[in-house]
Design a protein around this nucleic acid. Structure first.
Length: 242
DNA sequence: AAACTCGGCAACCGCTGCAAT
DNA sequence: CATTGCAGCGGTTGCCGAGTT
């Protein structure tokens, strides 16, 4: 959106770094009226910023619950772990790190790990990468297993129905589709409960992985399977492409 | 001292999903 | 159902300071 002024066109919205005064105005209005409705915050506060810019400034810099300072080794481990699981879903990762923003984590990843993956990796990092990739691979395997189980179940279900249909019609107890669906759903949940470990609903980090298979046994195989430059793996790319 | 490189970070841009109309 | 506006997300850019040549 632009505002015509003498001698040409000038942008209506201010851009670039925020001043202390702008910060003060924004903080004052958010504290007064709360988060959300960023476009009206911008105009009410008398800021020449668009709502988007206001939101970003608040979320990434002014929010009182933000944690300042360097990322701790523990946080780094969480980032690595969750990135292996979620890929570049920074906001999802940020939810597991209270006080850290998606932007912060994204920047941290880019400056620290993106480079590390290209430059020489020390052994511990390599080990970590392998572990993470292996976990990802196992997850995919479980997914496939589950799909196969579902298919098998559908087939047996179909067979059951077919055999029932073959019998005389009045002997058949009619099972409404909704009931079949419910039974299938129940069976599916049962399968999930043993294929997947219980995952905490409140916090995505902290959920346990499936039990580790012996590290030394399959290490060579994993080593050969993984291309260390490609951290995200085939599933991630496929998902992204679709 | 000047030029250059690089890391870190704030901010912008384009896109998507969703709710309201 | 189509349109519109908004919030949120991920990718990218550009600035700045510190370190190096």
């Amino acid at each position: 959106m632009y505002l015509a002024v003498m001698g040409g066109i000038e942008e209506r919205w201010r851009k670039g770094p925020w001043t202390a005064e702008e910060d003060r105005l924004l903080m004052y209005h958010v504290n007064l009226y709360g988060e959300g409705r960023w476009n009206s915050v911008a105009t009410l506060a008398g800021l020449k910023r668009n709502g988007k810019s206001c939101r970003l400034r608040w979320v990434n810099y002014l929010r009182p619950d933000l944690k300042r300072g360097r990322i701790s080794p523990h946080e780094e481990a969480i980032i690595l772990d969750l990135h292996a699981r979620w890929g570049n879903r920074w906001s999802t990762i940020a939810r597991s790190l209270p006080g850290r923003t998606d932007n912060e984590i994204k920047n941290y990843w880019r400056t620290h790990f993106k480079k590390k993956s290209k430059v020489t990796l020390d052994e511990s990092a390599k080990l970590k990468m392998r572990q993470l990739k292996r976990q990802k691979f196992q997850q995919e395997q479980r997914q496939q297993q589950l799909q196969q189980l579902q298919m098998q179940q559908n087939i047996t279900e179909m067979k059951k129905i077919m055999s029932l249909l073959e019998r005389s019609e009045d002997q058949v107890e009619y099972v409404p589709p909704i009931v079949v669906e419910k039974q299938q759903h129940k069976a599916y949940e049962e399968q999930q409960s043993w294929i997947y470990p219980k995952i905490s609903s409140s916090c995505c980090y902290g959920s346990s992985y499936a039990p580790e298979t012996s590290m030394s046994d399959d290490f060579c195989m994993w080593d050969g399977l993984w291309n260390l430059d490609d951290v995200q793996g085939p599933t991630f790319h496929a998902a992204k492409a679709s």
